[in-house]
């Protein structure tokens, strides 16, 4: 909501895949991969890792080619239907809105050591 100005889970930066008649619910969040395919395939160098290890997209450099979305192994990069720019979870500058708003406290932000180490 705060990110996009409205509600639609398809615009969320994480997803829950429902499988086998809803018996299994498999969550997917961006892994900020050490070897990030989205970053590797970007022809305009719009995708860079920041000092905190988060893979971020610069919308000014993004040329909307969609290669990042195509090669993300878990569907975590998408093209915004309004702007046609690539978007992904960048952890909201360290204070993820999804964690803040989750009514059941199912989400939390945890650090598993430094990715550059």
């Amino acid at each position: 909501m705060d990110l996009t100005g409205g509600y639609n889970p398809r615009r969320a930066r994480l997803l829950i895949e429902l499988k086998t008649e809803n018996l299994y619910h498999i969550p997917a969040v961006c892994n900020q991969c050490e070897n990030a395919y989205c970053m590797n395939v970007c022809p305009s160098k719009a995708i860079q890792r920041n000092d905190d290890g988060i893979v971020c997209i610069d919308p000014d450099k993004c040329i909307s080619c969609g290669l990042c979305a195509q090669f993300c192994p878990i569907g975590m990069v998408t093209l915004d239907p309004d702007t046609q720019k690539a978007v992904k979870c960048e952890l909201c500058q360290g204070e993820p809105l999804c964690v803040e708003v989750c009514p059941t406290f199912a989400l939390e932000l945890v650090y598993r050591g430094n990715i550059n180490e």
Binding site: T4, G6, Y7, N8, P81
Partner: peptide, 22 residues
């Protein structure tokens, strides 16, 4: 399949009401 957003008249007030509901 829908890609559009459902918008809200007063988001701040609505978020607060949702928190109360939860």
């Amino acid at each position: 399949k829908g890609s559009k957003l459902v918008s809200i008249h007063d988001p701040k007030r609505f978020t607060k009401a949702c928190a109360t509901a939860f």
